[in-house]
Simulated assay, not measured.
Amino acid sequence: MVSRSGRIILQADWNYVLKENGEKVWISFKTLNNPIIHGELHSDGVSSHGVPLVTGSESFNVQHITKNTITVTYKDGIGEYTRKFVAPQQEYSAIHNSRKSVASLDVTPGGLGVSADSEGKLKVWETSNGIVRRDLKGHLGDVYTCKFFPSGVVVLSGGADMQLKVWSAETGQCAANIIGHKAAILDTVIIERGRNILSCSKDGTVKLWDVGQQSCLYTYEECGGNVNCCSIGVPNRNVDLGQPETITSDREVQTEGKLLLIGTETGSIQGYGLQSRRKVFDLPCHGAVNCCCILSENAAVCGTQDGYITVLDLRNIRVPLKEWKESRSAILSFSTHNNGFFVSTGDGSCFFVNELCNTTTELTGADCDHIYKVVCDNTHVYTGCRDGLVRKYSCSQAGL
């Protein structure tokens, strides 16, 4: 069943504009297949505490406002809709000073970030101030994925040159170069501590690698087209992952009991027993699957190029828990947080979906530019955008 939910949309730079007395920003309310309702928020000055005094037109009402957040309600004849908007705590423009698109991004709780831009530049930087500490040079062409190993001092990257590279974030040196894919690498997964990794590619395969020997342990080949994304998790015991038909290599570590989730360009979300290699399910989606994530032992989520979000029940994959189209554009990435997840999209919106699959909070700042990646370290959220900026948001300010 497809849920038709309303969405409140606010001007991206509202937090700057509303500081000035007499200024206004646009605000809209949109539901699928219905006309957009337009309104305005007007600034009536600033309180003694430095907080803007704001009123809304039409059926828009400001419930609460601080320097970096604003909560707005819209009422119509059907119901009441509320959304909290959160402005960036910091914007880092000097990490990728070419101002090219930030294509991939990851952070560690230890204070380091890594990101790649559309010129193939891969950089390690401090999350507290955006100062670049290392340039990781060696890829030929665009880098589509970069992630930290659990240690927080080693980086995995992959891209258009069909190579996986393992880097020291401390020295900037490449410690391993893994070759085997026949087309661009689009996504990766690090298994447990990182002795094994997974990569998916435009060549239509997912490969399981032994990092130490830089060798392929297994190739999942029956994916049916470009594999855009992958994720792993430990599902409920009632999910039958199958048993290995052959004895696995002693170089394969901690793959038992894990589900491999992949999304394809041909529009399917598929699940495999990571160790058994058995295909557990193959579910058609609305369009090309750009991103996927296992949320818990019972649930997973995927997002499509045509803007649909589908939450899956891993115990009964035939019927989605919920499916809806909230964005005007493609769903590009997910990041889990507490009992929900952040979603980034191709229209500049980035929002949080809670455990009830309700959208409660939206991160602002990107003005209709693709947000290619969102990541969360439990205290802050970071986004990588087509406008070349890395934005940092406070989870506590967002109330998450």
Rank of each mutant, 00 (worst) to 15 (best):
I185M: 01
C302S: 13
A183S: 01
G120E: 08
Q275I: 05
D387A: 00
T360Q: 11
T336I: 14
C302G: 06
Q89K: 15
R133D: 13
Q163I: 12
R7W: 05
N316R: 04
D282R: 14
T127G: 04
Y81T: 03
G340T: 15
S128A: 08
V374D: 01
G340I: 15
L186R: 04
E362K: 14
N33M: 02
G225Y: 11
V154W: 09
D135P: 04
G257I: 08
Q305D: 13
S215G: 07
K147D: 04
V102H: 04
C368A: 07
Q11E: 09
F85A: 03
I331R: 00
C350Q: 03
T336P: 11
H49E: 15
Q89A: 11
S115N: 08
Q163R: 09
Q11M: 05
L400C: 02
T246M: 10
T108W: 13
E91D: 06
S168Q: 07
D250Q: 14
H370V: 00
E40A: 01
S344N: 03
V234I: 09
I70G: 05
I185K: 10
Q11A: 08
G271I: 15
H286W: 05
A184K: 13
V280W: 09
K75N: 11
V301G: 04
V319R: 15
C291I: 06
I70E: 02
I269S: 07
S151K: 09
L295Y: 01
S231D: 07
G50Q: 05
Q173E: 15
I36Y: 08
K19H: 05
L122N: 13
C293Q: 08
G242F: 12
Q397E: 15
W167T: 10
F352T: 06
T82A: 06
L112G: 07
D377W: 04
P244K: 08
G138D: 03
E355I: 13
G212F: 06
S327P: 02
I309D: 08
S57C: 08
L332Q: 00
C395P: 10
L363A: 01
C395A: 10
I65N: 10
E170Y: 05
G388V: 07
F342R: 00
